[in-house]
């Protein structure tokens, strides 16, 4: 795992989080949308926000990780406006 970003561009706006597989099926769409997010936001701050806005995901989000710009992000990584964020949970290759 690597720090995802060292930039600290401050802004407020919408954050979309891509979601796949069983989690996408559960909520009926392929992305989670959060409004009025204060960027940069830490990964470990974002997870509770996702649970708050999408309670149907609360059971599976504890076994999920966030990917930022196609790399797994550490809990203290910063997410900036414009980053591509994906929820990686309930994976099952093979």
């Amino acid at each position: 795992m690597q720090p995802v970003s060292s930039r600290t561009n401050r802004s407020t706006g919408e954050l979309q989080v891509l979601v796949f597989g069983p989690q996408a099926k559960l909520i009926g769409c392929d992305r989670l949308i959060l409004s009025d997010v204060n960027f940069p936001v830490r990964v470990d701050e974002l997870m509770p926000m996702l649970i708050h806005h999408y309670p149907d995901l609360s059971a599976s989000i504890g076994v999920s990780r966030l990917a930022v710009n196609h790399e797994f992000a550490a809990a203290d990584s910063l997410i900036n406006a414009g980053d591509e964020v994906a929820l990686v949970g309930l994976i099952s290759g093979g």
């Binding site: 796949f20 597989g21 069983p22 099926k25 990917a67 797994f72 994906a86 990686v88 309930l90 994976i91 099952s92 290759g93 093979g94």
Partner: peptide, 14 residues
């Protein structure tokens, strides 16, 4: 490798 793949690689099945 398969154990690691099932834990880390973003592949989903429905």
């Amino acid at each position: 490798f398969i154990d690691a793949m099932k834990s880390h690689v973003p592949i989903w099945k429905v």
